[in-house]
Design a protein around this nucleic acid. Sequence first.
DNA 1: TATAATTACTACTTAAAGGTAGAATTAATC
DNA 2: GATTAATTCTACCTTTAAGTAGTAATTATA
Lengths: 137, 137
Amino acid sequence: MQLSNSSKYAIRILAYMADQKDSKLMNATELAEALYIPYKFLTKIMTELVKVGLVVSIRGREGGYKFEKKTSEIMVSDILDIFNDSIKDEQCVLGIGFCNGLCKCALHDQWMEPKLLLQKMFRESSLEDIAGRGCKI
Amino acid sequence: MQLSNSSKYAIRILAYMADQKDSKLMNATELAEALYIPYKFLTKIMTELVKVGLVVSIRGREGGYKFEKKTSEIMVSDILDIFNDSIKDEQCVLGIGFCNGLCKCALHDQWMEPKLLLQKMFRESSLEDIAGRGCKI
DNA sequence: TATAATTACTACTTAAAGGTAGAATTAATC
DNA sequence: GATTAATTCTACCTTTAAGTAGTAATTATA
C-alpha cells in the first residue's frame, strides 16, 4: 500500500483506545504490551498525536492518554495526514510517470477509480467504525 | 500507494520501449535521457529486467536492450513482482493490524474492494495498454 | 517532602532503499 | 588485432524510516 509503520501503529493504538468500554486513561506501557508495539516507539507516536490534538496526555503518576475529540469525529485520513501518508496528490495512483490532467498514461483513468474509493474510505471511516467489532486490531 | 522507485522506473522504461514504433535496440543512455532516470540506476534496473527474462541485452558496441516477450504478454503485475511491490498478501490493504479471515477489523471488507480492483488491473493491464497513447510516460 | 509512576525531549543507532563510481567484459568496426 | 561503444558486476556512498537510550519534567500518593 504501503503505509508507514507510524501510521499503522497510530491507527491500531487509537482504534484500540476507542474500543475500550470505559473511557479511562490508558498509559503507554499498557498500550505497548496490548498492541505489540515497541514502548519507546509508541511514546514517540503518542507525542505526535498529542501535538496534533487528537488525544490529551496527563503527565505524572496515574497519568496516561485519552481522546481529545470524539471517536466518531476522527477520520482515518486525519491520522494518515499526520505522517504524510495520505493519497491526496493529483497524480495517478501509481505515480509512475508524468501523468497530469492533459497528458496521461493509458492507465491513469482506470487507476483513478480505486484511488477515489480509497480516499473516500479514508475520509469517511471514523475510529468508531474501525473499533468495537469484538476484534482487537 | 507507494511503489518503490525501482518499480515505477521499470514501468516507465518498459512502457517507453513498448511505445517505440520500430522495435530497434535501445541503449541505456538514450533511455536515461528520455525518461529522466539516473543513468547508473537505470542500468541497475535493466540488469534486473534481463535476469528475469523480460528483456534481452546485447552487449558491446551497437548493443542495447529489446523485449524478450511480446508487450501484450507482459502484465504490470509481472514488473511489480520483480521488486516485491505486488499487493498479493492476504492481509487487508492497509495492513494495519492483525486482521485475517476469522478476525478482522471493521474496515477489512471495505478495503478488500479497492484492493481487488487494483490487483485486477495489475494483472490485466499489459505494457501494450499503457504505452502508445501519444503520451510518453 | 520523598518517592514512584508517568509523559516529553534530545540524540543516537540500525536497516533498507536509493543512488553512484569505477573497472571488467563483450562485440562491432576500422 | 586495436579501438571504441556498449552492457555488467562489485562495491561503495547517501538518505530516510524505524527503532532505542537516557534523561528531564510532571504529578499523585504515602
